[in-house]
Simulated scan of single mutants.
Amino acid sequence: MKDFQIIPTENELDSLQRDLSFHPAGVPNPSTLTRDQIEHFNQRGFVAPLNLFSDDEIGDIRSYFDDLLATVTAGGGDSYSISSAHLKYGPVYDILNDPRIIDPVADLLGDNVIGWGSHFFCKMPGDGKAVAWHQDASYWPLSPSKAVTVWLAIDDADQENACMKFIAGSHTKGHMTYRPSDSAEHNVLNQTIDNPEQYGDLVYDPLRAGQASIHADLLLHGSEANQSDRRRCGLTLRYCSADVRAALGWNEKGVQVRGSDPSGHWSNRPRP
């Protein structure tokens, strides 16, 4: 299987003709989200919090992740390296397909939904690494820009242990100029957008374990270093509408989670 943990190079992405403009979301008759929530997503770029899993259910997911993390780190990985997990681990594939997650996503993206990404972002106590201000769409060889990220809290996430933060409304500004991050910045990612406040208001995204937020792929967001004595783990789940096209072989990551894929562009791999 191709190693999808390798981020496409800037030259590879620049060679693609991508539509990186915001496409307003929402369906005429939403099943889960309210019209106010959909309007909030379109204007502010996110919707949160969504109550998805009970304490017992998220406790089971956390226990599964604890065991998975121990296995991965014993093999030389780290707490950020569990990526494209739905292609390797059946329980993560099941979460990607959970109707409680797909229902609100489909209210934003429409009847035909592809789940294509799953990545644990786990900041250990005193981790020291920040996630600099960035747009998800910068990293993805996808077009048009009709994709969202669901951030499922595995642990409680608040400002003390470095919950996510957004620049509300920044998703409407288009694709932004970024600079490469250097090693001195202790950034989990390799891009940084400076002076984010020029694009909108700073909003924090605290979530209890079992809650989730959904944000647009063009929304400027990040998180600070976890200097607390508590872990902060979230599972990011990536979805797009089935009419989105993926270059560089990324269509192999896609699983049809709702409706159909009329063109057959996405590979729709079976549960691992």
Score class of each variant (00 low, 15 high):
residue 50 L to A: 03
residue 261 D to N: 06
residue 96 L to M: 10
residue 265 H to T: 00
residue 205 D to K: 09
residue 194 D to E: 08
residue 80 Y to A: 01
residue 259 G to Y: 01
residue 163 C to L: 10
residue 232 R to P: 06
residue 179 R to W: 00
residue 67 D to V: 11
residue 170 S to M: 06
residue 155 D to S: 07
residue 145 S to Y: 03
residue 155 D to H: 10
residue 47 V to G: 12
residue 26 G to S: 13
residue 252 E to T: 11
residue 267 S to K: 13
residue 196 P to G: 03
residue 82 I to E: 11
residue 45 G to C: 07
residue 233 C to T: 12
residue 92 V to A: 10
residue 185 E to Q: 04
residue 109 L to E: 08
residue 123 K to D: 01
residue 207 L to K: 10
residue 101 I to M: 10
residue 217 D to Y: 14
residue 32 T to P: 07
residue 16 L to H: 04
residue 249 G to K: 02
residue 233 C to G: 11
residue 173 K to L: 07
residue 12 E to Q: 14
residue 184 A to I: 14
residue 47 V to T: 15
residue 58 I to V: 09
residue 100 R to C: 13
residue 135 Q to W: 04
residue 238 R to S: 03
residue 75 G to L: 02
residue 123 K to M: 00
residue 71 T to F: 11
residue 265 H to A: 02
residue 126 G to Q: 00
residue 210 G to Y: 04
residue 204 Y to Q: 06
residue 257 V to D: 03
residue 132 A to S: 13
residue 32 T to G: 11
residue 255 V to W: 15
residue 213 S to L: 03
residue 229 D to M: 12
residue 70 A to E: 08
residue 190 N to L: 05
residue 225 A to E: 14
residue 113 V to I: 05
residue 229 D to Q: 14
residue 76 G to M: 05
residue 262 P to E: 04
residue 221 H to A: 00
residue 212 A to C: 11
residue 77 G to Q: 02
residue 18 R to K: 14
residue 14 D to A: 15
residue 7 I to S: 12
residue 53 F to K: 03
residue 43 Q to S: 15
residue 64 Y to N: 15
residue 151 W to T: 03
residue 210 G to S: 01
residue 165 K to T: 06
residue 97 N to M: 12
residue 105 V to R: 01
residue 8 P to Y: 06
residue 232 R to I: 12
residue 170 S to R: 09
residue 30 P to Q: 00
residue 49 P to D: 10
residue 46 F to P: 03
residue 256 Q to G: 05
residue 17 Q to G: 12
residue 251 N to K: 08
residue 30 P to F: 00
residue 41 F to T: 04
residue 68 L to R: 05
residue 209 A to V: 11
residue 204 Y to E: 05
residue 152 L to Y: 06
residue 57 E to M: 10
residue 4 F to D: 06
residue 47 V to E: 14
residue 36 D to E: 15
residue 272 P to E: 05
residue 182 D to S: 14
residue 88 K to I: 07
residue 112 N to R: 08
residue 212 A to N: 07
residue 239 Y to L: 00
residue 121 F to W: 05
residue 54 S to Y: 00
residue 109 L to P: 00
residue 100 R to W: 11
residue 212 A to R: 13
residue 53 F to M: 09
residue 28 P to E: 13
residue 66 D to I: 09
residue 160 E to R: 12
residue 90 G to D: 14
residue 134 H to K: 13
residue 37 Q to G: 01
residue 70 A to I: 01
residue 123 K to Y: 01
residue 19 D to Q: 03
residue 23 H to S: 11
residue 148 V to I: 09
residue 108 L to I: 10
residue 137 A to W: 05
residue 41 F to H: 03
residue 114 I to G: 13
residue 147 A to L: 13
residue 58 I to R: 02
residue 13 L to Y: 02
residue 159 Q to Y: 09
residue 19 D to M: 04
residue 180 P to V: 12
residue 187 N to M: 00
residue 104 P to V: 10
residue 255 V to Q: 14
residue 188 V to Y: 11
residue 267 S to D: 07
residue 246 A to W: 04
residue 114 I to H: 11
residue 228 S to K: 02
residue 254 G to K: 02
residue 183 S to F: 02
residue 167 I to P: 07
